[in-house]
Design a protein around this nucleic acid. Structure first.
Length: 428
DNA sequence: TCTGGGGTCCTAGGACCC
DNA sequence: TCTGGGGTCCTAGGACCC
Protein backbone atom coordinates (compact mmCIF):
# COMPACT_ATOMS: atom_id res chain seq x y z
CA UNK A 1 0.00 0.00 0.00
CA UNK A 2 1.14 3.46 -0.83
CA UNK A 3 2.45 5.60 2.00
CA UNK A 4 -0.02 8.31 2.95
CA UNK A 5 0.84 11.96 2.62
CA UNK A 6 -0.92 14.89 4.27
CA UNK A 7 -0.51 18.64 4.24
CA UNK A 8 -1.90 20.78 7.04
CA UNK A 9 -2.55 24.39 6.10
CA UNK A 10 -3.31 26.71 8.99
CA UNK A 11 -3.85 30.47 8.94
CA UNK A 12 -1.49 32.29 11.28
CA UNK A 13 -3.25 34.13 14.13
CA UNK A 14 -6.37 33.89 12.00
CA UNK A 15 -8.77 36.37 13.64
CA UNK A 16 -6.04 38.96 14.04
CA UNK A 17 -4.94 38.48 10.43
CA UNK A 18 -8.55 38.97 9.25
CA UNK A 19 -8.77 42.28 11.11
CA UNK A 20 -5.45 43.35 9.62
CA UNK A 21 -6.67 42.76 6.09
CA UNK A 22 -9.06 45.68 6.63
CA UNK A 23 -6.82 47.72 8.94
CA UNK A 24 -3.55 47.71 7.03
CA UNK A 25 -1.87 50.07 9.49
CA UNK A 26 -2.01 47.31 12.13
CA UNK A 27 0.64 45.20 10.43
CA UNK A 28 3.61 44.71 12.80
CA UNK A 29 1.70 46.20 15.74
CA UNK A 30 0.32 44.28 18.72
CA UNK A 31 -3.31 43.25 18.19
CA UNK A 32 -5.67 40.90 20.04
CA UNK A 33 -9.19 39.62 19.38
CA UNK A 34 -11.54 38.90 22.27
CA UNK A 35 -14.10 36.17 22.80
CA UNK A 36 -17.85 36.72 23.13
CA UNK A 37 -18.74 39.33 25.71
CA UNK A 38 -15.25 40.75 25.21
CA UNK A 39 -14.23 38.33 27.95
CA UNK A 40 -11.08 36.42 27.02
CA UNK A 41 -8.25 36.64 24.53
CA UNK A 42 -8.88 34.27 21.61
CA UNK A 43 -6.30 35.49 19.10
CA UNK A 44 -2.99 37.31 19.43
CA UNK A 45 -0.61 38.78 16.92
CA UNK A 46 3.02 37.74 17.34
CA UNK A 47 3.79 41.18 18.75
CA UNK A 48 1.23 40.81 21.52
CA UNK A 49 2.46 37.29 22.38
CA UNK A 50 5.77 38.93 23.26
CA UNK A 51 4.09 40.93 26.03
CA UNK A 52 3.08 37.71 27.72
CA UNK A 53 -0.61 37.73 26.80
CA UNK A 54 -1.94 34.18 26.94
CA UNK A 55 -4.59 32.42 24.90
CA UNK A 56 -7.84 32.29 26.85
CA UNK A 57 -6.70 34.82 29.41
CA UNK A 58 -9.40 37.14 30.79
CA UNK A 59 -8.98 40.59 29.27
CA UNK A 60 -9.57 42.45 32.54
CA UNK A 61 -6.46 40.81 33.98
CA UNK A 62 -4.24 42.41 31.35
CA UNK A 63 -5.80 45.87 31.00
CA UNK A 64 -2.54 47.44 32.21
CA UNK A 65 -0.44 45.67 29.60
CA UNK A 66 -2.92 46.57 26.87
CA UNK A 67 -2.78 50.25 27.81
CA UNK A 68 0.96 50.38 28.37
CA UNK A 69 1.80 48.93 24.94
CA UNK A 70 -1.08 50.43 22.97
CA UNK A 71 -2.35 46.99 22.02
CA UNK A 72 -5.24 47.18 19.54
CA UNK A 73 -8.28 45.27 20.74
CA UNK A 74 -11.18 43.83 18.71
CA UNK A 75 -14.42 42.04 19.58
CA UNK A 76 -14.92 38.80 17.65
CA UNK A 77 -16.50 39.42 14.26
CA UNK A 78 -17.48 35.88 13.33
CA UNK A 79 -19.29 36.65 10.11
CA UNK A 80 -16.19 38.41 8.81
CA UNK A 81 -13.94 35.50 9.82
CA UNK A 82 -16.31 32.89 8.39
CA UNK A 83 -16.41 34.70 5.08
CA UNK A 84 -12.61 35.03 4.90
CA UNK A 85 -12.37 31.35 5.80
CA UNK A 86 -14.58 30.41 2.83
CA UNK A 87 -12.26 32.29 0.52
CA UNK A 88 -9.19 30.50 1.87
CA UNK A 89 -10.84 27.07 1.60
CA UNK A 90 -11.86 27.67 -2.01
CA UNK A 91 -8.24 28.39 -2.87
CA UNK A 92 -6.98 25.31 -1.00
CA UNK A 93 -9.47 23.14 -2.87
CA UNK A 94 -7.57 23.95 -6.06
CA UNK A 95 -4.50 22.17 -4.72
CA UNK A 96 -5.95 18.74 -4.00
CA UNK A 97 -9.13 16.90 -4.95
CA UNK A 98 -9.41 15.73 -1.35
CA UNK A 99 -9.66 18.48 1.22
CA UNK A 100 -10.90 18.30 4.80
CA UNK A 101 -11.95 21.58 6.35
CA UNK A 102 -11.01 20.96 9.95
CA UNK A 103 -11.84 24.28 11.56
CA UNK A 104 -12.44 27.87 10.60
CA UNK A 105 -8.73 28.44 10.01
CA UNK A 106 -7.22 25.11 9.03
CA UNK A 107 -7.59 22.33 6.53
CA UNK A 108 -5.96 19.06 5.56
CA UNK A 109 -5.05 18.21 2.00
CA UNK A 110 -4.57 14.64 0.87
CA UNK A 111 -1.40 14.63 -1.21
CA UNK A 112 -1.18 10.83 -1.45
CA UNK A 113 -2.44 10.53 -5.04
CA UNK A 114 -0.62 13.54 -6.44
CA UNK A 115 2.95 12.25 -6.97
CA UNK A 116 4.56 15.62 -6.44
CA UNK A 117 8.29 15.88 -7.08
CA UNK A 118 9.02 18.74 -4.70
CA UNK A 119 6.69 19.02 -1.73
CA UNK A 120 8.38 22.05 -0.21
CA UNK A 121 7.88 24.13 -3.32
CA UNK A 122 4.29 22.85 -3.52
CA UNK A 123 3.76 24.11 0.02
CA UNK A 124 5.23 27.46 -0.91
CA UNK A 125 2.86 27.74 -3.85
CA UNK A 126 -0.09 27.20 -1.50
CA UNK A 127 1.21 29.83 0.85
CA UNK A 128 1.81 32.44 -1.81
CA UNK A 129 -1.48 31.89 -3.62
CA UNK A 130 -3.53 32.21 -0.44
CA UNK A 131 -1.66 35.38 0.38
CA UNK A 132 -2.07 36.77 -3.12
CA UNK A 133 -5.86 36.36 -3.08
CA UNK A 134 -6.74 37.03 0.57
CA UNK A 135 -3.75 38.80 2.19
CA UNK A 136 -3.82 36.10 4.88
CA UNK A 137 -0.58 34.39 5.94
CA UNK A 138 -0.62 30.60 6.31
CA UNK A 139 1.88 27.95 7.40
CA UNK A 140 2.11 24.49 5.88
CA UNK A 141 3.21 21.20 7.41
CA UNK A 142 3.68 18.07 5.28
CA UNK A 143 4.08 14.54 6.66
CA UNK A 144 2.90 10.93 6.36
CA UNK A 145 0.29 11.28 9.14
CA UNK A 146 -2.01 14.01 10.35
CA UNK A 147 -0.36 14.17 13.76
CA UNK A 148 3.09 14.60 12.19
CA UNK A 149 1.74 17.17 9.73
CA UNK A 150 0.47 19.16 12.71
CA UNK A 151 3.92 19.04 14.26
CA UNK A 152 5.60 20.00 10.99
CA UNK A 153 3.24 22.96 10.80
CA UNK A 154 4.06 24.06 14.35
CA UNK A 155 7.78 23.99 13.62
CA UNK A 156 7.33 25.77 10.29
CA UNK A 157 5.34 28.53 11.96
CA UNK A 158 7.79 29.08 14.81
CA UNK A 159 11.15 28.99 13.09
CA UNK A 160 11.84 31.60 10.48
CA UNK A 161 14.36 29.33 8.79
CA UNK A 162 11.53 27.30 7.25
CA UNK A 163 9.69 30.34 5.89
CA UNK A 164 6.35 28.83 6.88
CA UNK A 165 6.68 25.48 5.10
CA UNK A 166 8.16 22.23 6.42
CA UNK A 167 8.09 18.85 4.69
CA UNK A 168 9.08 16.13 7.17
CA UNK A 169 9.35 13.52 4.44
CA UNK A 170 12.38 15.34 3.09
CA UNK A 171 14.27 14.60 6.33
CA UNK A 172 15.89 11.40 7.57
CA UNK A 173 14.32 9.60 10.54
CA UNK A 174 17.22 10.78 12.70
CA UNK A 175 16.68 14.39 11.73
CA UNK A 176 12.96 14.11 12.45
CA UNK A 177 13.72 12.57 15.85
CA UNK A 178 16.06 15.43 16.60
CA UNK A 179 13.23 17.88 15.97
CA UNK A 180 10.83 15.82 18.10
CA UNK A 181 13.34 15.71 20.92
CA UNK A 182 13.24 19.49 21.17
CA UNK A 183 9.45 19.62 21.47
CA UNK A 184 7.61 19.25 24.79
CA UNK A 185 5.08 16.42 24.78
CA UNK A 186 2.08 18.71 25.22
CA UNK A 187 2.65 20.14 21.73
CA UNK A 188 1.29 16.94 20.24
CA UNK A 189 -2.21 17.04 18.77
CA UNK A 190 -4.26 14.85 21.09
CA UNK A 191 -2.17 15.37 24.22
CA UNK A 192 -3.88 17.95 26.40
CA UNK A 193 -3.11 19.27 29.86
CA UNK A 194 -4.17 16.20 31.85
CA UNK A 195 -2.35 13.65 29.71
CA UNK A 196 0.76 15.84 29.44
CA UNK A 197 0.94 16.14 33.20
CA UNK A 198 0.56 12.42 33.67
CA UNK A 199 3.11 11.63 30.96
CA UNK A 200 5.66 13.95 32.53
CA UNK A 201 5.15 12.17 35.85
CA UNK A 202 5.95 8.94 34.03
CA UNK A 203 9.15 10.46 32.67
CA UNK A 204 7.87 11.17 29.18
CA UNK A 205 8.57 14.83 28.54
CA UNK A 206 9.37 15.18 24.85
CA UNK A 207 7.55 14.19 21.68
CA UNK A 208 10.36 11.80 20.83
CA UNK A 209 9.92 9.97 24.12
CA UNK A 210 6.20 9.57 23.41
CA UNK A 211 6.94 8.30 19.92
CA UNK A 212 9.03 5.45 21.32
CA UNK A 213 6.84 4.72 24.35
CA UNK A 214 5.40 1.23 24.79
CA UNK A 215 2.23 0.99 22.72
CA UNK A 216 0.27 -1.36 25.01
CA UNK A 217 1.12 0.68 28.08
CA UNK A 218 -0.04 3.87 26.38
CA UNK A 219 -3.24 2.20 25.29
CA UNK A 220 -3.92 1.08 28.83
CA UNK A 221 -3.59 4.58 30.25
CA UNK A 222 -4.50 6.87 27.35
CA UNK A 223 -7.07 4.60 25.61
CA UNK A 224 -6.96 3.76 21.93
CA UNK A 225 -6.85 7.46 21.14
CA UNK A 226 -3.43 7.73 22.77
CA UNK A 227 -2.27 4.58 21.04
CA UNK A 228 -3.23 6.04 17.68
CA UNK A 229 -1.25 9.17 18.50
CA UNK A 230 1.88 7.10 19.17
CA UNK A 231 1.50 5.22 15.87
CA UNK A 232 0.90 8.47 14.01
CA UNK A 233 4.12 9.88 15.47
CA UNK A 234 5.89 6.85 14.01
CA UNK A 235 4.56 7.80 10.60
CA UNK A 236 1.72 5.26 10.46
CA UNK A 237 -1.44 7.08 9.40
CA UNK A 238 -4.35 6.01 11.65
CA UNK A 239 -6.57 9.06 11.38
CA UNK A 240 -8.08 9.25 7.92
CA UNK A 241 -8.87 12.36 5.95
CA UNK A 242 -12.60 13.08 6.00
CA UNK A 243 -13.62 15.33 3.14
CA UNK A 244 -17.37 15.20 3.80
CA UNK A 245 -18.54 17.22 6.77
CA UNK A 246 -20.57 14.87 8.98
CA UNK A 247 -23.96 15.92 10.25
CA UNK A 248 -23.65 17.10 13.85
CA UNK A 249 -24.78 14.67 16.52
CA UNK A 250 -25.53 17.44 18.95
CA UNK A 251 -26.15 21.15 18.44
CA UNK A 252 -25.44 23.58 21.22
CA UNK A 253 -26.16 27.24 21.68
CA UNK A 254 -24.91 28.63 24.98
CA UNK A 255 -23.91 32.12 25.92
CA UNK A 256 -22.94 34.22 28.85
CA UNK A 257 -25.30 37.17 29.23
CA UNK A 258 -24.07 40.73 28.99
CA UNK A 259 -25.37 41.23 32.55
CA UNK A 260 -26.95 39.20 35.30
CA UNK A 261 -30.53 38.07 34.78
CA UNK A 262 -32.83 37.88 37.80
CA UNK A 263 -36.28 37.25 36.40
CA UNK A 264 -37.77 34.08 35.02
CA UNK A 265 -39.29 35.99 32.10
CA UNK A 266 -35.93 37.22 30.85
CA UNK A 267 -34.39 33.80 31.31
CA UNK A 268 -37.17 32.28 29.20
CA UNK A 269 -36.64 34.98 26.60
CA UNK A 270 -32.92 34.26 26.36
CA UNK A 271 -33.45 30.51 26.17
CA UNK A 272 -36.10 30.99 23.47
CA UNK A 273 -33.53 32.89 21.42
CA UNK A 274 -30.93 30.16 21.84
CA UNK A 275 -33.47 27.56 20.77
CA UNK A 276 -34.34 29.61 17.68
CA UNK A 277 -30.67 29.71 16.74
CA UNK A 278 -30.02 26.02 17.48
CA UNK A 279 -33.13 24.95 15.55
CA UNK A 280 -31.94 27.01 12.59
CA UNK A 281 -28.63 25.12 12.66
CA UNK A 282 -30.57 21.85 12.98
CA UNK A 283 -32.67 22.60 9.89
CA UNK A 284 -29.68 23.77 7.90
CA UNK A 285 -28.23 20.27 8.15
CA UNK A 286 -31.64 18.75 7.29
CA UNK A 287 -32.12 17.11 10.65
CA UNK A 288 -34.68 16.67 13.39
CA UNK A 289 -34.00 16.16 17.07
CA UNK A 290 -35.87 14.26 19.76
CA UNK A 291 -33.99 15.36 22.83
CA UNK A 292 -33.61 18.85 24.19
CA UNK A 293 -31.52 19.89 27.18
CA UNK A 294 -31.52 23.28 28.85
CA UNK A 295 -29.11 24.53 31.47
CA UNK A 296 -28.94 27.70 33.54
CA UNK A 297 -26.22 28.86 35.92
CA UNK A 298 -25.16 31.74 38.12
CA UNK A 299 -21.77 33.44 37.92
CA UNK A 300 -19.34 30.67 38.89
CA UNK A 301 -16.49 33.15 39.34
CA UNK A 302 -18.25 35.04 42.11
CA UNK A 303 -17.23 33.02 45.12
CA UNK A 304 -18.96 35.20 47.68
CA UNK A 305 -22.56 34.86 46.42
CA UNK A 306 -24.81 31.79 46.53
CA UNK A 307 -24.43 29.61 43.44
CA UNK A 308 -27.08 27.67 41.60
CA UNK A 309 -26.97 25.65 38.42
CA UNK A 310 -29.36 23.17 36.92
CA UNK A 311 -29.97 21.27 33.73
CA UNK A 312 -32.97 19.41 32.45
CA UNK A 313 -33.38 17.09 29.48
CA UNK A 314 -36.70 16.43 27.81
CA UNK A 315 -37.36 13.70 25.30
CA UNK A 316 -39.80 14.35 22.50
CA UNK A 317 -42.09 11.55 21.34
CA UNK A 318 -41.67 12.66 17.71
CA UNK A 319 -38.47 14.18 16.31
CA UNK A 320 -38.92 17.79 15.23
CA UNK A 321 -37.15 20.93 14.07
CA UNK A 322 -40.17 23.18 14.54
CA UNK A 323 -39.00 26.17 16.55
CA UNK A 324 -42.29 26.92 18.39
CA UNK A 325 -42.56 23.33 19.67
CA UNK A 326 -38.94 23.31 20.82
CA UNK A 327 -39.34 26.67 22.51
CA UNK A 328 -42.41 25.41 24.35
CA UNK A 329 -40.40 22.50 25.77
CA UNK A 330 -37.48 24.73 26.66
CA UNK A 331 -39.64 27.27 28.49
CA UNK A 332 -41.22 24.52 30.53
CA UNK A 333 -37.74 23.31 31.42
CA UNK A 334 -36.73 26.82 32.52
CA UNK A 335 -39.86 27.14 34.66
CA UNK A 336 -39.09 23.84 36.35
CA UNK A 337 -35.50 24.82 37.10
CA UNK A 338 -35.86 28.51 37.91
CA UNK A 339 -35.26 29.53 41.52
CA UNK A 340 -35.84 33.17 42.44
CA UNK A 341 -33.20 35.18 44.24
CA UNK A 342 -30.21 34.24 42.09
CA UNK A 343 -28.36 36.29 39.50
CA UNK A 344 -28.14 34.09 36.41
CA UNK A 345 -25.14 34.64 34.20
CA UNK A 346 -25.29 31.94 31.58
CA UNK A 347 -27.77 29.64 29.89
CA UNK A 348 -27.65 27.18 27.05
CA UNK A 349 -29.57 24.64 25.05
CA UNK A 350 -28.44 21.38 23.52
CA UNK A 351 -30.37 19.53 20.83
CA UNK A 352 -29.52 15.84 20.49
CA UNK A 353 -30.83 12.46 19.33
CA UNK A 354 -30.52 13.90 15.87
CA UNK A 355 -31.92 12.11 12.81
CA UNK A 356 -32.14 13.03 9.11
CA UNK A 357 -35.40 14.83 8.34
CA UNK A 358 -36.48 12.37 5.64
CA UNK A 359 -36.63 9.53 8.15
CA UNK A 360 -39.78 10.64 9.88
CA UNK A 361 -42.38 7.89 10.27
CA UNK A 362 -46.12 8.51 10.64
CA UNK A 363 -47.34 7.74 14.13
CA UNK A 364 -49.03 4.35 14.39
CA UNK A 365 -51.50 5.61 16.93
CA UNK A 366 -52.48 8.67 14.97
CA UNK A 367 -51.15 11.14 17.51
CA UNK A 368 -49.23 12.94 14.88
CA UNK A 369 -49.80 13.81 11.26
CA UNK A 370 -47.18 13.99 8.55
CA UNK A 371 -49.28 16.71 6.92
CA UNK A 372 -48.84 18.95 9.92
CA UNK A 373 -45.14 18.13 10.00
CA UNK A 374 -44.64 19.15 6.38
CA UNK A 375 -46.60 22.35 6.93
CA UNK A 376 -44.37 23.20 9.88
CA UNK A 377 -41.25 22.47 7.87
CA UNK A 378 -42.42 24.68 4.99
CA UNK A 379 -43.12 27.52 7.38
CA UNK A 380 -39.68 27.17 8.96
CA UNK A 381 -38.04 27.03 5.53
CA UNK A 382 -39.66 30.36 4.64
CA UNK A 383 -38.58 31.93 7.94
CA UNK A 384 -35.02 30.67 7.39
CA UNK A 385 -34.83 32.09 3.88
CA UNK A 386 -36.16 35.48 4.93
CA UNK A 387 -33.73 35.66 7.85
CA UNK A 388 -30.88 34.62 5.60
CA UNK A 389 -31.62 37.25 2.97
CA UNK A 390 -32.70 40.15 5.20
CA UNK A 391 -30.58 39.41 8.23
CA UNK A 392 -30.98 37.32 11.37
CA UNK A 393 -34.13 38.02 13.36
CA UNK A 394 -36.02 39.75 10.59
CA UNK A 395 -38.68 37.23 11.59
CA UNK A 396 -38.81 35.91 15.13
CA UNK A 397 -41.28 34.79 17.76
CA UNK A 398 -42.69 37.21 20.31
CA UNK A 399 -41.37 35.10 23.21
CA UNK A 400 -37.84 35.90 22.02
CA UNK A 401 -38.39 39.47 23.21
CA UNK A 402 -37.70 42.80 21.50
CA UNK A 403 -35.09 44.65 23.52
CA UNK A 404 -32.92 41.73 24.66
CA UNK A 405 -30.93 43.90 27.01
CA UNK A 406 -29.16 40.78 28.34
CA UNK A 407 -27.33 40.27 25.05
CA UNK A 408 -23.58 40.00 24.98
CA UNK A 409 -21.31 42.96 24.89
CA UNK A 410 -19.21 43.69 21.83
CA UNK A 411 -17.74 47.10 22.30
CA UNK A 412 -14.89 46.77 19.84
CA UNK A 413 -16.59 45.24 16.84
CA UNK A 414 -15.16 46.03 13.44
CA UNK A 415 -17.59 46.44 10.50
CA UNK A 416 -18.85 43.41 8.55
CA UNK A 417 -16.74 44.43 5.55
CA UNK A 418 -17.46 41.43 3.40
CA UNK A 419 -21.02 40.46 4.29
CA UNK A 420 -23.01 43.70 4.62
CA UNK A 421 -23.40 46.23 1.84
CA UNK A 422 -23.67 49.14 4.23
CA UNK A 423 -20.39 48.23 5.92
CA UNK A 424 -18.10 47.91 2.91
CA UNK A 425 -14.61 49.24 3.33
CA UNK A 426 -14.50 52.82 2.10
CA UNK A 427 -11.38 54.49 0.79
CA UNK A 428 -11.28 58.25 1.20
C1' DT B 1 -17.13 45.65 36.92
C1' DC B 2 -14.65 42.39 33.92
C1' DT B 3 -13.49 35.10 33.16
C1' DG B 4 -16.04 32.19 25.37
C1' DG B 5 -18.58 28.83 22.57
C1' DG B 6 -19.22 24.54 20.09
C1' DG B 7 -17.98 20.21 19.12
C1' DT B 8 -15.87 14.83 19.12
C1' DC B 9 -14.65 10.31 20.94
C1' DC B 10 -13.92 6.70 24.52
C1' DT B 11 -14.84 4.09 28.72
C1' DA B 12 -17.08 2.39 32.74
C1' DG B 13 -21.00 0.99 34.87
C1' DG B 14 -25.85 0.03 35.34
C1' DA B 15 -30.21 -1.75 33.39
C1' DC B 16 -32.15 -5.20 31.05
C1' DC B 17 -32.71 -9.42 28.38
C1' DC B 18 -32.34 -14.36 27.47
C1' DT C 1 -26.27 -22.50 51.96
C1' DC C 2 -26.25 -22.09 47.32
C1' DT C 3 -27.11 -17.42 44.17
C1' DG C 4 -24.73 -17.82 35.93
C1' DG C 5 -23.00 -15.66 32.16
C1' DG C 6 -22.97 -13.18 28.14
C1' DG C 7 -24.68 -9.66 25.25
C1' DT C 8 -26.60 -4.99 24.17
C1' DC C 9 -27.99 -0.48 25.02
C1' DC C 10 -27.82 3.80 27.36
C1' DT C 11 -25.83 7.45 30.12
C1' DA C 12 -22.53 10.15 32.58
C1' DG C 13 -18.16 11.72 32.89
C1' DG C 14 -13.73 12.74 31.32
C1' DA C 15 -10.40 13.44 27.97
C1' DC C 16 -9.44 16.03 23.73
C1' DC C 17 -9.87 19.67 19.71
C1' DC C 18 -10.27 24.68 17.72
Amino acid sequence: MRKKLFALVDCNNFYVSCERVFHAHLAHTPVIVMSNNDGCIVARSNESKKFGLKMGQPVFEVEEIIKAHHIQVFSSNYSLYADMSDRVMKILAEFSPRLEIYSIDEAWLDLTPLSLPDLTSFGRQIKSRVYQFTSLPVSVGIAPSKTLAKIAHEIAKKHNAYAGVLDLTALSEQDVDQLLEALPVDEVWGIGMQYAKWLREQGICTVKELKYADEAWIRKHLTVVGQRTVLELRGIACIPLEPEPNAKKGIMTAKTFGREIKSQEELEEAVANYIARAAEKLRSQHSLCSSISVFIQTNRFKKDVPQYSASLTRHLPIPTAFTPDLIKQAREAVRAMYRPGYGYRKAGVYLSKIVPDENLQPDLFGGFSLDVHYKQMRLMAIVDVINKVYGRDTLFLAVQGITRTWKMRQFKLSPHYTTRWDELLSVT
